[in-house]
Amino acid sequence: MMRAWLLLSPAVVFLGVFFGVPIALVAATSFVGKGGVIALDQYRRFLLDGFYRSFLTETILVSVVTTAACVVLSFPVAYQLARARAAMKGVLLTLLIAPLMVGDVVRGYGWLIALGDFGVVNQMLMRLGLVDKPVRLIFTPTGVVLGLVEVLLPFMVLPLAAAIGGIPPALEEAARSLGARHARVFRKVVFPLSLPGLAAGVVIVFALSMGSFAIPLFLGGVKVNMVGPLIFQQATLTVDGPFAAAVSCVLFATSVLLLVAYAWVGSALRAEAGGR
């Protein structure tokens, strides 16, 4: 027990100094009201003012859609990844992880070019005759969701693949031998048993999406109101420290609540799944 603490202490000290202290400072700053008194003014402004509240609701909406899209797109990929043979698994993992080597900013810029009125996507749509004039994609929530899904997909695929990898293939074979077609095998066996991994992926993707910055900045511009760019703008351009701190705290609280919910749901799911 002592040794465990000894081994953990560098990480604990590092997190305490460089994560705990700044968070505490930000939290303290957020309670500074007009005239320097301790008050809830900043929170009132963010949550009650219709203009600022739209940042929160739009961010939640974009994050929900992004997370949902990631769930749907991840299952086939995660399943292939989990059931692939060792050599193929390496190839798939590399393909999945490679985009993470490129920063958000580069990818945001890339998407900006690709989704623009004269970008690859619109040119293809027009050439295929699906539309006759460019579809507005950049500076729309759709564009932001597209970019976020691409960036965040690996964070859904990896925990999901780990969960599916833990389901013995014999369970699927047993289901098939009992008369279940593929859809039923998925619905009754694979899906319920992969829920713990799915829950982990949902929490990670939703939290990252809520706090995303570069993608909303590039693809949302000033037309899509998201919390990440708002904090940046308040902290650096408007130089309204207390307000930026309050917005940050709301974002942080959302993530913490999500984690608590995950821990609770997760343990219930594991108990249900048999914990083997």
């Binding site: 074979e173 047993a174 289901a175 098939r176 799944a273 048999g274």
Partner: peptide, 18 residues
């Protein structure tokens, strides 16, 4: 397999844990 009318018992039983 699903259309074969066979009953299969596996080495590790492969019971659905959930």
């Amino acid at each position: 397999a699903y259309a074969r009318r066979i009953g299969l018992v596996f080495q590790n039983y492969a019971l659905f844990p959930h």
